[in-house]
Computed example of a mutant assay.
Amino acid sequence: MSGTGMLAGLGLGAVEEQLYLRLLGVQAADPQWLAAQMNLQTSIVLAALVSLAAQGLVEACAAGAWAAVPPDVAVEELLLRREVELRRARGRMGELMRAYRQGRDGSGSDGPAEVICGRRSVAELWRTLQQGVRRQLRVLDRPPYIRRSDPQTELALLARGVTTRVVYHSQVLRDPERLAEIHSFTTAGEQARVHTELPLKLALLDDRWALLPVSAGTELQSVLLIRPSTLLDALAGLFELYWAQAMRLPALPEENPEDRHRRLLPLLAAGLTDESIARQLGVSTRTVQRWVRELMDRFGARTRFQAGIQAARAELL
């Protein structure tokens, strides 16, 4: 039997979760009745009841019956215990990292920097660090332009209140698609500036980590992970220096939606694919799809064909 997953984050197994949810719907029940209802052996149900009782979720009643403890009391207490366990585990992170480094190089020293090699390892590290950032993310972003992350990850950071400041190399102003994406970030709360000269790519996450490439190649094959140290402080100072010197990001040029639609419609009418239209207009396929959706919304059309008919009636074709 598989659990619903509703309480999986509290460490309950599938049987324990199903049993607790079953007991929430009755005043009390004996193990034999529960076993019959759940198509399980009575011994399995008894073991799950004992485990739930140890976690404060159920309690024994008279005549061998069991009852659920109200969730506003039981689940809250369980959540508090889990939080204590997580804080204790986080406190042992230094010890775990020493063991990790000792296994790598035979030393247990806490060095300020570690080299991470391989594009996949670098990408996984970046995702992990982003998920762990709590207060602020600071970035110097210069060519080669490798995406910092999925745009949704960036937007999720901003949504949970992470202060994000980015200094972009001025070369980004010549890339309309990248510039449009950056403006979507600034609309969501990112603070962005541009600078004509950036010495390196750099990411600072809270005051705990920094990432920078080992070399200025065309791909991020290896990075340095910097931990709290004078080096990390120096990199933070470098970011603040370039932030103070940088200019505000210019606004996107205004484009009349009707002009955009007039460029798009003949290509749609010609039966070109989104990819072909994107190449013709010098934009991304995702942008073409967004424009098509915008056009359909404008005319209240459910299909592209209907949008084309409405556009012809409006003399846009």
Rank of each mutant, 00 (worst) to 15 (best):
W66Y: 06
G5P: 07
G111N: 12
L12M: 04
V15N: 02
Q18P: 02
W66P: 00
A89R: 14
L238H: 07
E181Q: 13
L21K: 01
D274R: 08
S107E: 14
E240K: 09
L231F: 02
M38D: 01
V167P: 03
R148Q: 06
Q37F: 01
H169G: 07
A251Y: 11
E219C: 05
T287S: 11
V84P: 00
A251R: 14
L80F: 00
A188P: 04
R193M: 04
R279Y: 11
I309W: 12
F239C: 08
T196L: 13
A65V: 04
Q102E: 14
W209T: 02
R293M: 07
I277A: 02
T273S: 15
M38S: 12
P253V: 13
P112Q: 13
A48D: 04
A301W: 04
D175M: 05
G108V: 15
Q289P: 07
R88H: 09
Q131K: 11
P71Y: 00
R134M: 12
R313Q: 14
R134I: 13
G271R: 08
W126K: 15
A113T: 15
S121K: 11
R313S: 11
T287H: 08
E124L: 15
I277Y: 01
V223K: 00
P151V: 05
Q27P: 00
Q289T: 07
G5Y: 10
F299P: 02
Q27H: 10
T164N: 04
P144M: 13
V283I: 15
E294Y: 05
L96D: 03
M247T: 13
I309C: 06
L157N: 01
W209N: 02
G11P: 12
A60N: 09
E77T: 04
D150W: 08
S107V: 15
A216T: 09
K201M: 08
G108P: 09
S51A: 14
D259H: 10
P144A: 08
L205R: 11
C61I: 04
H195I: 02
A123G: 10
W33C: 06
D274G: 11
G300L: 03
R290W: 03
V75C: 00
G64H: 06
R304W: 08
T303W: 13
W126P: 00
G308S: 08
A312I: 05
Q280G: 00
L96H: 05
A159Y: 06
L86A: 07
R293S: 10
L205V: 11
R260V: 15
